[in-house]
């Protein structure tokens, strides 16, 4: 396993400015484009990003505005089932594609606005975890010895806790809120990247060209970030994409437990949590936010799988 791996990694080193290296990235891109699941995932994510950015323009209502007392709205509004004009709902009535929630707010608008919160938490927490985690891993792998041991044992301890439990504990200490949930998810995700980065460093640092650089007296920083990091990028990107999905799920779980987004913020996990008492009588209130979470996570998972297949030539046998 190790030998072919190392060879491809070697080829991929952009520092050498080898003519093959540029084409390898292009190859990879082509592979991504040919990979059906990656394309599907990318499409889903692209749409979600569009929705997140355009929500203020495409949402029919203000997501935190109660419809009670609003023009055209009469009668018992909370938990009102969806009214879709195309499906025969009277045109007289205001349209609410996914109905109204317990506070008589438009669920569809809340779902659209919720996309921004979920994507933000997913992407930033993972980005944070990658930056901190891979730096730690690079340093640990490159320095070895005591530093390595110290860093990796701390990571082992963090890994010893079921991640959601640790995240719950951290949010309790920091106080509930979407930002703190983001931070907690980032912290529990760090060890995975530290391990990944360290493993890459260990497989690369003994190669001749690195040893040569070192003998020539190149500064550690340049070797680490100029030569070693680029080689470790592929697995980090793949793992990163996959764990955005997990982060979105964890954020929803924290909100579900009341530790994430605080009301009236439109957040899918929190929407589910508020409506969970009404699953038997108003299932639509629970169905749509869950579906939204599922589609988002599915998008990142598909892209992650596709990227892995496309970027890691050793896996291209089937």
């Amino acid at each position: 396993m190790a030998a072919p791996d190392a060879v491809t990694k070697l080829k991929a080193d952009p520092f050498k400015n080898h003519p093959r290296s540029a084409s390898l990235w292009i190859d990879a891109l082509k592979n991504v484009r040919r990979n059906r699941s990656a394309v599907l995932g990318l499409t889903i994510i692209g749409l979600l990003i569009l929705i997140a950015l355009l929500a203020p323009y495409i949402a029919p209502y203000d997501p935190i505005q109660s419809m009670i007392g609003q023009p055209g709205h009469t009668g018992q509004l909370p938990r009102k089932p969806p009214c879709i004009h195309l499906l025969g709902c009277s045109v007289e009535e205001p349209e609410h594609l996914m109905g109204l929630d317990l506070n008589a707010r438009d669920v569809f608008s809340r779902i659209l606005f919720g996309a921004w919160n979920s994507l933000r938490v997913g992407i930033t927490s993972v980005a944070f975890a990658i930056i901190v985690g891979s730096s730690l891993g690079l340093v640990a792998g490159y320095a070895s010895g005591l530093v390595d041991n110290l860093i990796m044992r701390v990571m082992d301890v963090l890994l010893a806790f079921p991640s959601l439990l640790l995240a719950i504990a951290i949010v309790t200490v920091l106080g509930p809120g979407l930002e703190n949930a983001l931070l907690a998810i980032a912290i529990v995700t760090i060890p995975a990247y530290a391990r990944l980065a360290r493993a890459s460093v260990l497989s690369i640092k003994e190669f001749d060209y690195i040893t040569a650089e070192r003998t020539l007296g190149a500064p550690h920083g340049r070797i680490l970030f100029g030569h070693i990091l680029p080689n470790a990028l592929t697995p980090l990107i793949v793992q990163g994409t996959l764990s955005i999905g997990t982060a979105v799920l964890d954020a929803a779980a924290l909100s579900f437990l009341g530790l994430g987004a605080q009301p009236p913020t439109p957040e899918w996990g929190a929407m589910l949590s508020e409506a969970r008492n009404y699953v038997f009588t108003s299932p639509h209130l629970v169905f749509y936010p869950g579906l939204a979470i599922m589609i988002t996570v599915l998008g990142f998972n598909l892209l992650g799988d596709g990227l892995r297949d496309a970027l890691d030539p050793t896996l291209n046998r089937f």
């Binding site: 505005q65 317990l102 506070n103 605080q262 009301p263 508020e274």
Partner: peptide, 25 residues
């Protein structure tokens, strides 16, 4: 009968008169 819902409606009502509340369960 519906603590969270009433809390959020009060939050919206108080915002109207210039009192922004953070809900704390």
């Amino acid at each position: 009968p519906q603590p969270g819902v009433v809390a959020q409606d009060l939050q919206a009502q108080l915002a109207e008169i210039g009192i922004n509340v953070t809900i704390d369960v």
